[in-house]
Design a protein around this nucleic acid. Sequence first.
RNA 1: GCUCACAUAGCUCAGCCGGUAGAGCGCUUCCUUGGUAAGGAAGAGGUCAUCGGUUCAAGUCCGAUUGUGAGCACCA
Length: 612
Amino acid sequence: MSYEHQGEIQPTDEKLYKIRHSLAHVLAQAVLDFREGSTLGFGPPIRHGFYYDFALSSPINEEDFPEIERRMKKILKSGQRFYREDLAKNDALARLEEMGEPYKKEYAIELCEKFNLDTLTFFRNGPFVDMCEGPHVDTTRDIPRDAFKLRSVAGAYWRGDSDNQMLTRIYAWAFLTKGELDEHVDAYLKAQERDHKKLGRQLGIFAIDNEIGRGLPLWLPHGTVIRDELEKLACELEFKAGYKRVSTPHIAKRSLFYRTGHLPYYADDMYPPMELIEHTDSGEEVKEAYVLKPMNCPHHHKIFAAEPRSYRDLPLRLAEYGHVYRFEESGAVSGLLRVRGMCMNDAHIYCTEDQIKSEFLSVIQLYAEAYGILGLDQYYLRLSKCDPDDPKRAQKYVDNPVAWQTSETLLEELLIENDIEFVTGIGEAAFYGPKIDVQFRTITGRDESVSTVQLDFAVPARLELAYVGRDGELHTPYCIHRAPLSTHERMVAYLIEHYGGAFPTWLAPVQVLVVTVSEKFHQYGEQLVAELRSRFIRAELAPESDTVSKKIREGTIRKIPNMLVLGEREQEDQTVTLRRYGVGEQTVLPKNQFIEHIEKTISARAPEFLIN
RNA sequence: GCUCACAUAGCUCAGCCGGUAGAGCGCUUCCUUGGUAAGGAAGAGGUCAUCGGUUCAAGUCCGAUUGUGAGCACCA
């Protein structure tokens, strides 16, 4: 799955694939020449180009790129032919040994063992030889000299395993023509303007202060409006779907998490415990450790356990926007996407085995409804299963092969029966069960799980949760964990990038900016703002001392969805001139009609302004 | 956590080969009352991330720390 993240693509005969693959060899040739004594790792084509991993004899950084590119272009110009050579296994290994390529050799040995090979394929172009399956272009002259660009240098573990040595990876873009390259670089730069970290500051949505702590965002007034709107949406959808809201504390005794099975495995992902000294009635000192909760489920399970439950109570759906804290490693923390404190649109559905499918399905329908309202359509579902071949399996997953098998099959059937498209992610399951993750691609091209639905067949039993069945006996419920609107942090990050900061009216921190044409109409402006606010419409009056042009410019930069221009004409006729964000022409309409329309727009959570 | 890069005013950034800090925006005050993307003037604002080293002298060179970014690993 790690290759999935890097955007690795399957080998094809396509010209572009061959060009990218061949350019990787050209890069390697240039680098080995530039840094003698370096050795090779992997160098595959990827989504928009290719990369190559090196164990370098001395470091390279981006300042060296022009020189490396110059050498690459020279190689392209010289028209080296690509020759395929198939070598018997022992000859191949001997050659890799002689070439001084320990990583390639290690991989070669593994390939031979795994696939029982007796020959290995090499490609030679000019002085450069690489063990590689191809395919390649015929000669380096077939590669356009102006359609590639070295992009960045980064560390990457050999074979994607952090126990291995870290190699240096050089990423590059490569296309068929210079035009396509330029277009892609352009789009890349434009995408960076939509980065939620950048817009989040510009639009006053969140701030990160080092005295508060890394990964602990502060929500500014504008960001808090968005959170409140999302929360309101969730409450409405969940109310209609039969959820009950609950509320739980941010901390709990550490012992609870031992009982659920989260500890000791997840200790590294949790903030260290707070040690308390408590006194018993007899005056004895007792030490008690409390932890910040990394998830809400144990608390919700305890709400389930707070009363005797009957099968008639099921499915019981408990919902909470709950705060959780996870100690993410320093290198993982980023903006709102990976944080150490977050607020999750969480709920746990306790049900019988017979109810699992229908509950899962209604959760998926809830997702679809929520995403429809939010205008999100760029996502895919991933069925996340455990990895039975993982050597670390015992540390990663609950040991209950039968339950894994049944629950994974159940989810898979559910998706297939309902014609829901999905990909499968081996090794992506939760420790207590399989899940269906909703994957988004961020503006910077990274895939992230935004939401998740999980089936838990393990923890309710550990906490001895039970309900009285029709048969009068006690039974253990199943639990479905779900978070359609993700965490506020991730969802807002995603929404900022999705809308480029230009939110639809219902979500916009400021919904209406009132622009008066001169001081004379300021009072009319103030009255209008007051009237809008009395109807809970978030309206602001543009600063008095600015010129009209300046006010419009500021409103546009702030991406406020609706601006109302007020002057003599408007005051006399009790009208407003409506200027929508990103819309050229303006509309003049009676003030009351505007209010009526915007109220409709907001209550419908419409993506566009409803004029009728 | 790991690799590499970066850190100058609230924001965006300039500052050569070491000689003690600059612009635009924003902010404050004043003037301007302007019909659709920057009206004008003045002023305030910096221990150049922190700590240490080299040097007569460090924003500039070196080291460490912290933070940020691009990746890798991780991601209940």
